[in-house]
């Protein structure tokens, strides 16, 4: 792949830092800043935010001076299936209960890979669900409800 006239990755990173700094900075501004003796909750984060914005700007400036490598491909399929897995677990662990929730969480995550076919995915999810129920719920005695209220008939 060809190199670019400026480092896009670094430039993007710098912009990201500036945005994060601004995000925290604005919120700090709304908090009580206080004095040096009695610093308020906003004092320290405001100072840090300013530093972060400056650092981000410096990163951007540096990026324009040197060529960089391209960012490369993104794991789109991975993001679609991996990131929701823990969210799904969080949404259902109390309602559905531990066993069905962890089974479905694993099942969802399986689809992130093209190599995983539905049947092995099902099998793997069952194995994971059984194993983690035995280890965490029975052996370690974690206070999880195995089957939640949504499932009680």
């Amino acid at each position: 792949m060809t190199s670019q006239s400026y480092d896009k990755a670094d430039a993007a990173a710098g912009v990201l830092f500036i945005l994060i700094g601004l995000g925290f900075g604005v919120q700090s501004w709304w908090l009580d800043i206080g004095t040096a003796l009695r610093m308020g909750p906003g004092y320290f984060p405001l100072v840090l935010s300013v530093i972060l914005v400056l650092l981000g700007a410096a990163v951007v400036v540096n990026a324009t001076k040197q060529p960089g490598e391209p960012i490369g491909s993104l794991a789109a399929r991975g993001m679609i299936y991996i990131l929701p897995a823990p969210i799904f677990f969080g949404l259902t662990v109390r309602g559905l209960g531990f066993v069905p929730s962890i089974f479905l969480t694993t099942f969802i995550a399986c689809f992130a890979s093209l190599k995983m076919k539905p049947l092995p995915a099902l099998l793997l999810s069952v194995v994971v669900a059984v194993f983690s129920t035995l280890v965490f719920s029975y052996a370690l005695g974690l206070p999880f409800r195995r089957f939640g209220p949504w499932l009680s008939f």
């Binding site: 309602g95 559905l96 209220p149 949504w150 499932l151 008939f153």
Partner: peptide, 8 residues
């Protein structure tokens, strides 16, 4: 999930 909620 609607069914489950109703069951709950």
């Amino acid at each position: 999930m609607a069914v489950s909620v109703k069951v709950g």
